[in-house]
Amino acid sequence: MLFEKYASKMMAVCMRYCKNQEDAKDLLQDGYYKVLTSIKSFKGNSKIDTWMTRIFINLALNRNRIGRNKYSHFEFDTKFEKADFDEEPVSEDIEAKIVIKALNELPEIYKTVLNMYAIDGLTHKEIAERLGISEGSSKSRLSRGRSMLNAKLKRKK
């Protein structure tokens, strides 16, 4: 069954696009509802979990756009300083929890692009379409997001 098999994976997706567990659970329920009501449109061109992930992402993005912060309450990080731009990459032996926590602390615009590009494997074109921005913006957000995350991880380590 789709829920039993993929709920954990989808919850991970939800957690990455939401700030807290309550919001993520809301998204999980809405996402599964959407998946189950549109399962007929799944053509089998990709893996079912990839298709489901896309649905969850779209839903999270849509809800953020339409119902201002239905699932999350992000603020633009105005405290971000130039000093945070550190080009020396952090070492890979860092705990998953810390990485995800640091990711969640990023301003939404960077976090979303990082999530979509680095973890969910969307291209800049796809990201640009979904977020309603240019591919250039997507690239610059990714770059800035990487820097910010790198800086945060270094501090946490």
């Binding site: 080009e87 990459p89 890979e92 998953a96 990485v99 990711l103 680095a118 973890i119 991880l153």
Partner: peptide, 11 residues
């Protein structure tokens, strides 16, 4: 910083 992507993916 591209290696941040793999750190994220792994995490």
């Amino acid at each position: 910083l591209k290696q941040i992507d793999s750190i994220l993916k792994k995490a």
